[in-house]
C-alpha cells in the first residue's frame, strides 16, 4: 500500500538537474518529514509525488501502480502560498467543494466559519485560506497528503490547529503524510522519521 518514488531525476528544459537519484517511500499512517536547504528541489519532488510533474528518470508508484492520469488523485498536494492555490474569481464555497463536499466535523475542527463561504479569496487572511485548501485536499479518496511548507507563513495557533486536524486523520484514516518544512521543532513534534534531501546531483 505504499507511495514509493524510485530513482527520481528531474530538470527543466535542458538546464541543470534539479533532482537526481532520489528515493522516498511513504507508508499509510506514517508521517515523514523532508528537510534540506532551499533550492534543492523539495518543492519539485512534492510536485512529482503528487503527479503535477512527470519525472525524467525513475518512477512514482502507488500500491505498485503508476499514479492515475485522470480522476481524483489519491495523493494530494497542499502548497505553501494558499492565495496562489485558489481561483481569485471564485467564492470560497465553490473553492471548498471543487473536489468533494467536506462535512461539518472537518470544517469545525479547522475552525472554518460558515460566514466565510460567500467571501472572495482576497477577503480572507492567509491562515483562513490555508484551512480551506487543506479541507479541499482531504477528500475521502485522499490516502497521501504532501504538505509543502503549508504552515510556514502562519501564526503558531493556526499552525497547531491545522496540524492537529492532520494528525487526527492520520490516526482515523491511516493517512500517510509527507511534511516538507524548515521548522525543526515542528518536524520533531509531528514526524515518525525525518529525511534530509542532500545535494547529490550530477
Amino acid at each position: 500500500m505504499p507511495l514509493e518514488a524510485r530513482g527520481i531525476g528531474f530538470r527543466y528544459e535542458s538546464g541543470q538537474w534539479v533532482l537526481r537519484g532520489v528515493d522516498i517511500k511513504l507508508e499509510p499512517g506514517e508521517i515523514v518529514g523532508l528537510t534540506g536547504p532551499s533550492g534543492l528541489g523539495k518543492t519539485t519532488l512534492a510536485r512529482i509525488l503528487a503527479g503535477y510533474e512527470r519525472p525524467l528518470e525513475g518512477n512514482v508508484e502507488l500500491d505498485g501502480n503508476p499514479l492515475p492520469a485522470t480522476g481524483y488523485n489519491p495523493v494530494q498536494l497542499v502548497f505553501q502560498h494558499p492565495e496562489k492555490a485558489v481561483n481569485p474569481r471564485w467564492r470560497m464555497c465553490d473553492i471548498l467543494t471543487e473536489g468533494w463536499e467536506p462535512n461539518d466535523d472537518l470544517l469545525t475542527s479547522l475552525s472554518i466559519e460558515k460566514g466565510w463561504f460567500s467571501r472572495w479569496p482576497n477577503e480572507l487572511s492567509g491562515g483562513e485560506l490555508q484551512r480551506f485548501c487543506l479541507a479541499r485536499a482531504l477528500g475521502p479518496q485522499t490516502r497521501y497528503l504532501i504538505a509543502d511548507e503549508i504552515t510556514a507563513m502562519l501564526d503558531a495557533i493556526t499552525q497547531a490547529q491545522i496540524w492537529h486536524v492532520v494528525l487526527d486523520l492520520v490516526h482515523k484514516r491511516n493517512l500517510g503524510v509527507l511534511v516538507i518544512s524548515h521548522d525543526g521543532p515542528l518536524l520533531k513534534r509531528l514526524c515518525n522519521r525525518v529525511t534530509e534531501l542532500k545535494s547529490e546531483m550530477g
Binding site: 475552525s111 460566514g115 491562515g127 484551512r131 495557533i157 497547531a160 490547529q161 513534534r189
Partner: peptide, 24 residues
Amino acid sequence: KALWRALAKNEFVATPGAQPSPDA
C-alpha cells in the same frame, strides 16, 4: 499565552477559533 503554548517546541496546543473578520 495561547500563542506561546501553541508552539511546536512547547505544548503544541491548538486553541479553537479564528481571528475576527475586519468588516465585523
